[in-house]
């Protein structure tokens, strides 16, 4: 059970996340939706403790995650595996080493720094890669892979962390439609087969409705919607996304200019 209580993060006077509260049951697939800049990314980064909250608490199975320090903090980061929009792999290291990075919190520092990885960890990393059909790329440099392959390496890295929860920050924003499906399907399978909680930032409402059991809508740092995808009416979605609504909802093409709906030059920005 992940519980977020009154979580707030301010950069200067601007609140990126403003008093967010919710709790997430184990095994759920939760989508966080909202326009860009709504604070979705900061929320996830705070849960992984990459960003520090200004106030509020995060509790995981009763432990106050916001109070963790040192080794315990690193253990928590490993348990809440993060997947990034830009993959955040180390470009010049090979794929297998990148996946092994997921074991850093578990093994003694001297071993990892000297790159003496335990045999079972190597086996784990290779198996994880094999699950995504990229085990044959193990010796390649990560930056020589395509975006879709890199994101699969990143997911493999997340999996070898043996996480309880996966935090995916716009995992498909840099990918083409085919890889989008591969990555989202992988997340869904991880969620359904192994009961790992997935908390996923999504810009596209269509995807969020397809994959998630529950949606949390954010606007200007606040949680403004929390419920099943079915409860998210077009009306609410329009409020959430404002001008971007048509963009993210897929369907409707831009209205044809017919003289009445086209705003006059210069008024669009003010609208």
């Amino acid at each position: 059970m992940l519980v977020v209580e009154g979580l707030t993060c301010r950069f200067g006077t601007k609140a990126a996340v403003d008093n967010a509260s919710f709790s997430i049951a184990p095994g759920s697939f939760v989508g966080v939706i909202g326009r860009s800049g709504a604070g979705k990314s900061t929320l996830l980064r705070m849960i992984n403790r990459l960003a520090d909250p200004t106030s509020g608490r995060i509790l995981f199975e009763g432990t106050d995650v916001t109070a963790l320090r040192g080794k315990e903090l690193r253990q928590w980061r490993a348990r809440s595996a993060m997947i990034f929009q830009q993959f955040n792999l180390v470009g010049r290291l090979d794929v297998l080493t990148n996946v092994l990075m997921g074991r850093l919190a578990q093994i003694p520092s001297w071993r990892s720094l000297a790159q003496v990885w335990p045999e079972q960890d190597r086996a784990l990393a290779l198996s994880a890669l094999d699950q995504f059909d990229i085990a044959q790329l193990a010796a390649q440099r990560a930056d020589q892979l395509s975006g879709g392959q890199q994101q699969r390496v990143a997911i493999a890295r997340a999996l070898v962390q043996e996480p309880d929860i996966i935090l995916a920050d716009e995992p498909i924003a840099s990918l083409d439609p085919r890889n989008t499906k591969i990555v989202m399907d992988a997340l869904l399978r991880i969620n359904k087969h192994f009961g790992i909680t997935v908390l996923c930032n999504l810009h596209s409402l269509d995807l969020a409705r397809t994959y998630c059991d529950r949606l949390i809508g954010m606007a200007a740092g606040r949680v403004v919607f929390d419920g099943a995808p079915a409860a998210l009416t077009d009306q609410i979605a329009r409020e959430l996304y404002d001008l971007e609504a048509n963009d993210v909802m897929g369907g409707a093409p831009m209205p044809a200019p017919d003289g009445t709906t086209v705003p006059a030059l210069g008024t669009a920005a003010a609208a």
């Binding site: 094999d130 999996l159 043996e162």
Partner: peptide, 9 residues
């Protein structure tokens, strides 16, 4: 025991 989403080959 932990949730392991990787099956060893």
């Amino acid at each position: 025991p932990m949730a392991t989403a990787v099956s060893i080959l």
